[in-house]
Computed example of a mutant assay.
Amino acid sequence: MNMNSNEPPVVGVIGLGAMGMGMAQSLRRAGFAPHVFDLRSEVAQGFAKDGGVACASLGELGSRCDVVISVVVNAAQTESVLFGEEGKGGVVSTMRTGSLFVMCSTVDPNWSVAMEARLAERGLLYLDAPISGGAAKAASGQITMMTAGTAAAYDKAGGALDAMAAKVYRLGDRAGAGSKVKIINQLLAGVHIAAAAEAMALGLREGVDPDALYEVITHSAGNSWMFENRMAHVLAGDYTPLSAVDIFVKDLGLVLDVARASKFPLPLSSTAHQMFMQASTAGFAREDDSAVIKIFPGITVPAPKNSHS
């Protein structure tokens, strides 16, 4: 544990999935030698072969780190990381007073506000810090972080945030604002994927050559980042889950929960959420979110190409 504030903090990363692995690699590249933990111990050990430390438990990671970065799926997994389950302790049991927990999941903003207070009672700092950008940007240290927290939390993070992200937005002096902005980003991402799928489905139904349609749209005003990215998966017939259908069942559900609390109407989000739920129930839950196109009747989506794109 570094007591000298001039030295970089000892940083830990929990969850070496598509995003967490890239973030840990970016930290290592920046000279942090991160401690890592994943339920798949072989993944953590594989990471540590090139530098860093694989921890055998959450408790071990918590005891060794000034800054703990959690990159798991949702609020429930984050609580499990913090407080443990099935008799196994979480990181809170060993984190020292004044240490920082950085929460990178997409969660209900009210949950994040409550967690900041809950950790403050234990003498721990908290940063509301959802992320965006995808696996490639995580690996190159180019993600976007939507953060909110106290000045002390930012001070404790040292250069760790900038090592992982091209953009670290400071959106408030306490938790909540980061998660609110992330929720709004997810509203747009989900609606854009659903709209892209609907457009491509109409093109297929009308007999337009899908590759030509893709080429025209991506060079026209109707394009979106999600159309360009996700419809490439459809054209390749490759539904390997970079981000699964069920992620948007969850995230658009959170969007609607937040709006429902203040009776705010979200007609497009509601429709997109129904589309992802239909795709999930139809058997595409764990496929790439572009598989939402498979809910449309009377079309044949492109067959898998020989090479993945």
Rank of each mutant, 00 (worst) to 15 (best):
G176N: 04
Q278C: 10
K305P: 02
V107R: 10
G89C: 04
D50W: 13
V13T: 12
S224C: 03
A166C: 03
V36D: 12
Q186W: 03
A136T: 12
V53T: 14
S262M: 06
V168C: 12
V73T: 15
K182P: 05
V249S: 03
E42C: 08
F47T: 09
N229R: 08
M3C: 10
A135P: 07
R118N: 00
G12I: 01
G222S: 05
V11M: 00
A76L: 09
G20K: 07
F264K: 05
T147I: 08
D38W: 02
D173F: 02
M164H: 09
G159W: 01
D288C: 07
P9R: 06
A194P: 03
A76R: 13
A120Q: 00
V73C: 12
M277C: 11
F47L: 11
S220F: 03
M3T: 15
S224G: 04
A18H: 13
H35W: 14
E121T: 05
V245M: 08
A157K: 07
S93Y: 05
L82Y: 00
G46Y: 10
F276W: 12
V258A: 09
A199D: 03
M21S: 11
C104S: 13
D246W: 06
H219Y: 01
V71Q: 11
I143V: 12
D128T: 01
F37Y: 13
M3Q: 13
Y154D: 00
G133P: 12
Q77P: 08
A18F: 12
A199G: 14
A30W: 04
M115N: 00
G253I: 03
V72D: 13
I217C: 04
G159S: 06
F37T: 01
G15Y: 06
R28H: 13
N110M: 02
N2E: 07
S93F: 04
E42T: 11
W225P: 01
G51F: 13
T271L: 14
L100A: 05
P302R: 09
H233L: 03
L171N: 06
M95Y: 00
T144M: 12
R260E: 14
E206V: 04
E7N: 14
N6I: 03
M1W: 06
V43S: 14
L266G: 07
A177Y: 07
D211P: 02
W111K: 07
W111N: 03
S307G: 05
L256I: 09
T94M: 02
S70P: 14
A151H: 09
A33G: 12
E86C: 07
T94S: 14
G253Y: 06
K88T: 10
D251H: 08
G178I: 00
I193G: 02
L16Y: 04
M226Y: 07
N110R: 11
A163Y: 09
M95P: 01
A175L: 04
T281W: 02
S93L: 13
A272N: 15
E85C: 12
V168R: 15
L188D: 03
A282I: 05
Y214I: 00
A166V: 02
G98Q: 03
N223M: 01
A166Q: 14
I14V: 15
T78W: 02
P265R: 11
S93A: 15
A139Y: 11
R174Y: 01
H273N: 13
V181H: 11
P241D: 07
A189M: 01
T240F: 10
T150A: 01
A291I: 10
K294Q: 11
S26A: 15
K180V: 03
